[in-house]
């Protein structure tokens, strides 16, 4: 397991806002190895996107302030001059986004947008670039790929556009692909196809994937390990099997309780935990989940932030009173 591609240590992101400092990401750490899929799960507003935008260097500073460490193949990214960081972005580390319509430029052809990173990083031009673009579209399962290169985004369906986004992410053979809610905007069938596609490509190319979602259901199908995020912190981290079988953090338990079980009605809202996620400007002094937690003790939980502690193996939880493994 010494194949670490990306090591994130104590990553913190704050924003200066009119209301005060927003503590959006509050010291998250993880390592991702070659060929591995790591899922980051959490409610809307928990800081998932900001966390990965920070490690891609895509947060304008100011207003953001990013601290901590992000090592890519042992090289610290956060101190990198912009120029050198740009040579990694889109090449070694690629990112795909939630809304495939908004994420593609409406006035540029698919071919233009797909070839752009190849031109930029691999100096591929003309026929060679065209061929590679065609191959990529073919790889992600787009029929008659050659003709599609001339299309504009509005001439494709949502699922097709998301496949194009993935092809764009793969353009320069990255070893890390960050997928931020890559399937959220799609219908369930297309969603399953995309998840399956990424899994297949990953095996074939050996890249690592950071899969961000608020849908625990998707996680089960794709990830090796899961980090549960809340209030800009990781609450629990475990292998997928362990997380689903023995969730140890009250928040994870609540999340799992809110996903639909086979045979039961799908809840109207995916997250049905009472109360609201914390306001990043007014973060609780103790455990961020305390205001909504059924197990909070009203003392330590309110004034001491629980640290991530190992519960055996790679399973960890940040809670003063981790739940029993069985129940």
């Amino acid at each position: 397991m010494n194949d670490a591609i990306l090591e994130v240590r104590d990553l913190t992101v704050r924003f200066g806002t009119k209301r005060g400092v927003a503590h959006v990401v509050n010291g998250i750490s993880y390592t991702i190895n070659r060929g591995e899929t790591l899922a980051i799960v959490g409610e809307s507003g928990s800081g998932k996107s900001v966390g990965v935008l920070a490690l891609m260097g895509l947060l304008p500073q100011p207003p953001a302030l990013v601290t901590g460490s992000v090592r890519y193949h042992g090289r610290e990214l956060l101190d990198l001059p912009p120029r050198e960081w740009r040579s990694i972005r889109g090449k070694g580390m690629a990112m795909i986004f939630q809304d495939p319509m908004a994420s593609l430029n409406p006035v540029r052809t698919i071919g233009y947008q797909l070839i752009e990173p190849m031109e930029h990083h691999l100096r591929l031009k003309g026929k060679a670039a065209q061929n590679r673009a065609t191959d990529l579209l073919d790889l992600v399962g787009i029929p008659s790929p050659k003709e599609r290169l001339k299309n504009y985004p509005h001439q494709m369906s949502g699922g097709m556009r998301q496949r194009v986004m993935i092809a764009m992410g793969l353009a320069c053979d990255p070893d890390v692909l960050v997928a931020d809610e890559a399937t959220t905007a799609l219908d369930v069938t297309t969603q399953a196809q995309i998840v399956e596609l990424v899994g297949r490509l990953q095996e074939k190319i050996g890249m690592a994937v950071i899969w961000i979602t608020h849908d625990l259901g998707v996680v089960a199908g794709i990830a090796d390990r899961v980090h549960v995020m809340y209030g800009g912190r990781f609450m629990e981290q475990a292998s997928v099997d362990n997380l689903f079988a023995t969730p140890r953090h009250p928040y994870t338990r609540a999340l799992l309780g809110s996903i639909p079980k086979p045979g039961k009605e799908r809840p109207a809202k995916l997250m049905t935990i009472a109360g609201m996620p914390p306001d990043p400007v007014l973060m609780p002094a103790g455990c961020p989940f305390a205001p909504r937690c059924a197990h909070a003790d009203g003392a330590r939980c309110d004034d001491t932030i629980p640290q991530m502690e190992s519960l055996g193996g790679t399973h960890g939880a940040a809670c003063h009173y981790p739940l029993e493994a069985k129940s």
């Binding site: 986004f97 908004a102 994420s103 764009m168």
Partner: peptide, 26 residues
């Protein structure tokens, strides 16, 4: 402020390239 600008930056384009190739045409 459109999303495709972030996509363009994520490709590793410089800010000027992003403006010239993606922002201005829109």
């Amino acid at each position: 402020n459109q999303h495709y600008v972030i996509t363009a930056r994520a490709k590793g384009l410089s800010e000027w390239q992003v403006v010239r190739r993606h922002v201005l045409p829109n």
